[in-house]
Amino acid sequence: MKKIINDPSHLLEEMLAGIDYAHGDKLERIKDTNVIVRKNKRQGKVSLVSGGGSGHEPSHAGFVGEGMLDAAVCGEVFTSPTPDQILAAIKAVDSGSGVLLIVKNYTGDVMNFEMALELAEMEGIEVDQVIVDDDIAVEDSTYTAGRRGVAGTVIVHKILGAAAEQGLSLLELKELGDKLVEQIKTIGVAIHAATVPEVGKPGFELADDELEYGVGIHSEPGYRRESIKSSREIAEELISKLKQEFNWQSNERFGVFVNGLGATPLMEQYVFLNDVKQLIEAENLQIEFKKVGSLMTSIDMAGLSLTFVKLTEQEWLDYYHAPVQVTSWGG
């Protein structure tokens, strides 16, 4: 393992200190916690809290600020944060209008956030949650913990963040969130696994000439391993999976998001998007937004994911384009 770190067990602490130093004008770390909140909190709106294990930067602290999240709770690397930390975030951001939790669908995250939700309710705070499960690589939820939450979560942050800023109530946001999640689907591909610093070796081994489709953002196994393909062929595979899920018709409206998993350069992400473009054109879909960048990473995993959002409501697009003041959403 070769990484620019110090003692791996201090990594979370040191990263948070760095974030605090870099973005202290916009963000604030709640004392004695691993919670990052926005500095100029607006009163009278529903507050949004997200979070999860660390290692997915800029998720989620990079999306804290006006128009997106009010707080991000940072767990240990690839480990869900604990209920007391989540509760601290909820209490810090609630301004009386309630708090919505945005949770990626992993057993640990779901249970820790749920316990925090129960604790907050006991303290008289109104809380609800939206669970994101956009990873279509997992086919069956009867025999698994269900579809995982991956890159689509960032789109949920953006759309719900704008909606909250415009004054939607907790109930309205919850409904919007649940409806939106149904229309977001993601599928990924990895060409090299991530190395968790405390573990010291990659989560799985792929030969130099291999790729694996459907890998999760914590190196959960995918659905097929084969020899490395061109960007165009990978795009064909991922699009065919998405097509199967959406069963789309020509002229339907979509947003497209190519997400780098950590070690795949932006250059390759653009090459890939260009291949996606050609395939979409052949399908006659109407593309309303495109996003490219490493927003939901998996430490140093090489690979990318492709997210499609079916825009069944015009407001979703308006929320998507609404102004935002966070460190990592990009242009």
Binding site: T79, S80, T82, P83, D84, Q85, G108, M111
Partner: peptide
Amino acid sequence: LSKIGGASGPL
């Protein structure tokens, strides 16, 4: 609950 995290913490 406050230190384990992951799935086993809440359990």
